[in-house]
Design a protein around this nucleic acid. Structure first.
Lengths: 337, 337
DNA sequence: TAAAGCTACGAAAACGTTTAAGGATTATGA
DNA sequence: TCATAATCCTTAAACGTTTTCGTAGCTTTA
């Protein structure tokens, strides 16, 4: 590897001059700056990130804490897209991404210890169990952190507007003539789940519609099988709903299956709607009505916030940014006369 | 951050002794070793990875080069699972993962330059365009590299057994009584595509079956829409196939849609089969017959190979490891009398 | 009792950077 | 003409490790 020392030798200047020339300090003449930069380019020089990090305490590396029940959140469509967008935005500003959600190492480090060990400049957290001590230790630390779809007082966050999303979806379904609307909701106690349930009830109530208790059942996220069962239960009611809402698009597939097993048609006999707007929703037949989350904006905004905290800690607000989703009208919700 | 210097001070020994005690060198007495380790634990010490990397040229960091046409391969179900498995295996051996497939940085680095800049110990490459100069530069470099689903002479690789997979699938379909089998294949010129096509023809031929030219059409990977069109074309033939194979499971969804649009039934009127065995395949109705790729083994093996190259360069073979998939019999392929 | 060999530790250099402080040369001003 | 200032560069220390080499003090051996 070619180092500054090599460039210095070839240019006949000191290492310090090379450093300053490359970093654009003002006490270097235009002539040497150009000469050094040219030689550096010619010799294929790139800085050693470890040395730089050691000296400056800046690694230009961002820690990623993404998990789901299955493991690392890498196989999760919605969060995969969010991460993707985050990555593009971060890289455009010179940051790389390193996973810090170690599954099991020899010596056990907490997430915070791992972050310090790797010297990351900041951490983005999404889709984890925020009740875990380890996670809260990180959130409460002095490290720049941004959380996605969860808000802590101490750190900025980017959250999807689940209240408005649910409201838009339910309003649309009502506008299509439905009165008996059921909701298979997520199985956890997260803010996301609570907000969606709350918004569901409120929107229904504001439209003057009753929601029988048996219309709101606990399903789970990304669980087509469980949601298939729940759907079967709803369809077996003596007064079944005319439309069923699911916690996410993947779960809605379970609904499609339950309906088809009974040789019913969508949306002729029953209407269904999902949430998230992943690719799958667009290729289902009939196309799934859903709320498309703006993963690009969420990821990009989170990256901007985190890098803001890193580079301008004084002027970056600890705020909660709310990103709206978009109603995607598919054929899965039919018009009731 | 607590450093070795702090521990040294508290223990009344030199920094060198602390380093050696923590790293288990033999020229340290049992007594001091224990004392140092205890203090380190007590003070919450963790090494500074930058300093260590700078000194030892070992970062315990692995570069990840995963892309797809859409971007970073993070939203790709099959490779997402492979990466997931790789990650678990690598972390168990103390390695972290950093992306090196930078989309666009201020100063443009090649993948190799980026790898050296970050000082990664090795790189895992999957699902990229291996014809790109940048990729081949990396593959041909002296850096430890392992490739997935592609083999270069100079580096070990882990590849899915597409030949056997296709053979198993086609044999099964034939055993179900099908004679007129069509194949919508991938749209690129990759080894994966070539091997599958070759295996398809060979298996058909060995069974004494003809394959009309119009039965093999160019689709594309993960493209339900294109594959829906191709399916429509096949169904419109004056002698349509009784079974259609797709390049992957997602694309098969396009097939399902095309069939349903025509009010035909699966597998009553037409049988379909996919490839990959992603979660989606298991929740489709009827369940999709497919070849389930062993993503866990692929990822785990790749990690073992790469770490082998890093830690024991002399004794690690530059070999091609072939991992078999598993036939998953769903209801989408029916029995023909 | 002296030479040799161990054992357990420390001093110091090195990895590749950044940066504060200082020094040499030239330009400016009275 | 001389002090002062500005410009451009160098020296050296530092970041937190690892590792080579040296050595003090002890034990063994003959």
């Amino acid at each position: 590897m070619v180092s500054m020392k090599d460039i210095a030798k070839r240019c006949g200047v000191s290492v310090a001059t090379v450093s300053k020339a490359l970093n654009g300090h003002s006490d270097i003449s235009e002539a040497t700056r150009l000469a050094v930069r040219e030689k550096a380019r010619e010799m294929g020089y790139f800085p050693n990130s470890s040395a730089r990090a050691l000296k400056t305490n800046r690694s230009f590396n961002i820690g990623v804490l993404f998990t789901d029940r299955a493991g690392n959140g890498l196989t999760h469509d919605y969060f995969g897209h969010v991460l993707d967008s985050f990555k593009v935005a971060a890289e455009a500003r010179g940051y790389d991404l390193t996973f810090i959600n170690t599954n099991r190492t020899s010596r056990k480090m907490t997430f915070l210890e791992h972050s310090r060990y790797r010297g990351v400049d900041g951490v983005v957290i999404a889709n984890v169990d925020f009740d875990r001590d380890e996670v809260m230790e990180l959130v409460r630390s002095d490290l720049p952190v941004v959380t996605i779809d969860y808000s802590a007082d101490s750190k900025p966050s980017v959250v999807s507007n689940n209240i408005k999303g649910m409201q838009d979806l339910v309003s649309y379904v009502i506008s299509m003539g439905h009165r008996r609307i059921a909701y298979i909701c997520g199985g956890d106690e997260s803010v996301v789940t609570r907000n969606r349930i709350g918004s569901f009830y409120r929107t229904m109530s504001e439209a003057g519609l009753e929601v029988p208790d048996e219309y709101v059942v606990r399903g789970d996220y990304r669980s087509p099988d469980l949601c298939r069962e729940c759907t079967a239960g709803l369809l077996a009611l003596k007064e079944p709903p005319t439309c069923i809402l699911y916690p996410d698009d993947l779960s809605a597939v379970g609904g499609y299956n339950a309906v088809r097993e009974r040789h019913l048609s969508i949306p002729g006999d029953i209407s269904l709607a999902g949430y998230d707007g992943i690719n799958l929703a667009k290729i289902m037949e009939p196309q799934l009505t859903t709320i498309e989350q703006d993963t690009v904006t969420i990821g990009k905004t989170a990256a901007a916030k985190l890098i803001g905290m890193i580079e301008h800690p004084k002027t970056t607000l600890i705020e909660k940014v709310i990103v709206d989703g978009k109603l995607l009208k598919g054929g899965s919700v039919g018009k009731l006369s």
